[in-house]
């Protein structure tokens, strides 16, 4: 009950408060770790393909969806859908046209529906691994090479792979912020 005890408690509780402030920030990597573990998030780097056994017994329809957020680009998939066997290496090509009058750098962010499909969607090569800088009026064809893990649950028959291009600072050399 002495002054010293009070002070000790003050320091300890203060330390807890500071630690919790740090914990707030720690929630960021924690969130991404959980999302990665559940396959809910896809970082901008190639996935390791471990099993390339093609499962010819079933076909999964992959829809390619494209979005552009507040920038003067036109972004389309050459093929809007592909019917593929899990395990087969597939390439899809997208076209981007910079219809604005200046050089613009964009970063594509992938997203999947249903969300859990992300875990089984392995991208070997993707334009989303890098920023893309397009000169005014430039048109560019961009591939994504992927494999759907044969472990994909059977009730998933349709997967949407959706890309959104955001305008970012810098040039095409940079890696993604993720």
């Amino acid at each position: 009950m002495s002054e010293r005890e009070n002070r000790r408690l003050l320091v300890r509780l203060g330390a807890v408060a500071v630690a919790m402030f740090g914990f707030g920030y720690a929630l960021v990597p924690l969130y991404y770790t959980v999302c990665d573990a559940l396959g809910l998030r896809d970082l901008g780097r190639p996935d390791a393909v471990v099993n390339t056994q093609v499962d010819a017994t079933r076909t999964v329809r992959v829809q390619f969806d494209t979005n552009v957020r507040s920038m003067g680009w036109q972004f389309t998939a050459l093929e809007r859908t592909a019917d593929i066997h899990p395990g087969a290496v597939t390439q899809a090509v997208f076209r981007v046209v910079n219809s604005s009058g200046r050089a613009v750098t964009g970063q594509a962010i992938p997203s999947y529906a249903p969300r859990l499909a992300g875990e089984y969607f392995r991208k070997v090569e993707c334009f989303c691994f890098q920023r893309q800088t397009l000169a005014p009026g430039e048109t560019r064809l961009m591939p994504v090479v992927f494999v759907i893990d044969p472990g994909l649950p059977h009730e998933v028959a349709t997967i949407t792979l959706s890309y959104t291009f955001f305008e970012v600072e810098g040039t095409g050399d940079g890696q993604t912020g993720a």
Partner: peptide, 13 residues
């Protein structure tokens, strides 16, 4: 003490 710092972290972000 456990959660006000987390809010402070969120708004700082």
């Amino acid at each position: 003490i456990a959660v006000m710092p987390v809010l402070a972290g969120a708004v700082t972000m």
